[in-house]
């Protein structure tokens, strides 16, 4: 409510809007998709024979898990583009995608854990998928930590891009190593009954809805990064100007700004 209310109020008092009409359409579509997904997950999709209603959690779980990996793919792509083109926009996309990726990976781990507690009776087990997702989460967090600890902007972008690429290359290796590692030990197999057509449709709608949500989040985070960069640049411009003004003895502007 707050979001829409603020947006309309700002439009009314003539402040620059938070999002244009195109944005409003996207948010409306998002709302419709998310409601549809909720309806289908809870009411439309039939109960499953073995797991009963618990399987309904899997629709959301599959969707956030896919997006966790997709976001990391975007980090890698943007990192390669940054090293190649050296355009800060690619770096902004990489950091936006990494942060949203951490969020989705966290959601994957939590929803998977809740489901596992119910179906397997444990919160955690060293299943290859779980393990790989956990490692993915660690790599994302390391990526963000690395960025946080480097002060020089150019160095930060460069180094983060390299780590982004290396991290993504590592993920399939982690997957194979965990798979082999676990295959040496007996693993309790999960019974997977066949999916009905309703279930498949529900899954598709849920994945689409969450994917749209994910892209909206990445876009917002990207815009935030660009805005901060602009603020950074503006502060530099004020300082440059003050340097010139000081030479001519004129009064200087306050060196404030975000």
């Amino acid at each position: 409510m707050g979001l829409l209310g603020t947006a309309l109020r700002r439009r009314a008092v003539g402040q620059p809007p938070l999002f244009g009409w195109r944005g409003l359409i996207v948010y409306a579509a998002l709302l419709v998709l998310m409601s549809a997904a909720l309806y289908m997950i809870f009411i439309y999709a039939p109960a499953e024979r073995v797991q009963g209603d618990a399987h309904r959690l899997l629709y959301g779980h599959v969707a956030v898990a896919w997006l966790a990996f997709l976001a990391f793919g975007i980090v890698a792509f943007a990192s390669v583009m940054y090293l190649w083109r050296r355009n800060p926009r690619w770096d902004s996309l990489a950091v936006a995608s990494a942060e949203v990726g951490v969020l989705f990976t966290t959601l994957t781990l939590i929803s998977g854990s809740v489901w596992g507690r119910h179906v397997w009776g444990v919160w955690w087990t060293w299943d290859p998928r779980l393990t790989t997702t956990l490692v993915l989460w660690f790599i994302y967090v390391a990526y963000l930590a690395l960025r946080m600890y480097i002060d020089n902007v150019d160095t930060r972008r460069r180094v983060a891009a390299i780590f982004g690429i290396v991290g993504v290359v590592d993920v399939p290796i982690v997957w194979y190593s965990v798979e082999w590692w676990r295959s040496l030990h007996p693993v309790q197999s999960v019974t997977r009954a066949g999916l009905t057509a309703e279930m498949v449709l529900t899954l598709v709608v849920t994945v689409v809805a969450f994917t749209v949500f994910c892209f909206v989040l990445i876009r917002q985070r990207y815009l935030l990064e660009r805005a901060s960069d602009e603020g950074e640049g503006l502060r530099d411009i004020v300082r440059n100007r003050n340097d010139v003004l000081r030479q001519t003895g004129a009064p200087s502007a306050p060196e404030a700004g975000e």
Binding site: I41, A54, L57, V64, L107, S111, V114, W115
Partner: peptide, 14 residues
């Protein structure tokens, strides 16, 4: 209960 915990966490965080 599990179902609601699971989805509530997802929605709140997103």
């Amino acid at each position: 209960v599990f179902l609601f915990i699971g989805y509530a966490v997802i929605w709140v965080l997103l």
